[in-house]
C-alpha cells in the first residue's frame, strides 16, 4: 500500500540561532532516513516545504473562488514536509513514521493513499 506521511511541527522551533542549529541537525537526520527508505525500496517521494507564511490558499465557496494569504488554518503546528512511501501495512508505515525526525511537539500524520 501507498502511504503519505505528513509532517507538522511548531514552526517557531526553527527560529533564531538555536533554531538554525536545530534545522541543520534535523535535515541531517532526514538525509539518513531518505537513504534508509531508498535502501529498503520504500521511498516513492518526499520534500520539505517553505514555512507556512509563504502559503497561499484558494478557497471555493458559493460558486466563487477567492485567494487568501496563509495556510488552511493558522495553528501552532504547520505542515512542513511529507514522505510518500510504499509499505506492506499500517504497522510497517507507522514504523517508518516513528523514524521521521521532528522537533519537540512535532507530529506525523500517516494517511493511506486512495487506490481507484
Amino acid at each position: 500500500m501507498k502511504y503519505l506521511m505528513l509532517i507538522a511541527e511548531p514552526e517557531n522551533a526553527y527560529e533564531g540561532e538555536a533554531g538554525e542549529a536545530k534545522l541543520t541537525e534535523i535535515v541531517g537526520k532526514h538525509m539518513a532516513l531518505v537513504a534508509e527508505l531508498q535502501a529498503a525500496g520504500a521511498l516513492l517521494g518526499g520534500d520539505g516545504l517553505q514555512p507556512s507564511f509563504t502559503a497561499t490558499t484558494v478557497r471555493t465557496q458559493g460558486g466563487a473562488q477567492t485567494v487568501h494569504d496563509g495556510p488552511f488554518a493558522e495553528t501552532k503546528e504547520q505542515v512542513g514536509g511529507y514522505y510518500l512511501i510504499e509499505a506492506a501495512d499500517l504497522d510497517a508505515a507507522l514504523a517508518w513514521a516513528k523514524k521521521i525526525p521532528v522537533v519537540d511537539g512535532g507530529m506525523v500524520e500517516v494517511r493511506p493513499v486512495a487506490e481507484y
Partner: peptide, 14 residues
C-alpha cells in the same frame, strides 16, 4: 480495511 491495519500479532518489540 482502508488504512491497512494488519491482522497479525505484532513483534514483541511492539
Amino acid at each position: 480495511r482502508d488504512a491497512g491495519v494488519p491482522f497479525e500479532v505484532p513483534g514483541r518489540a511492539a
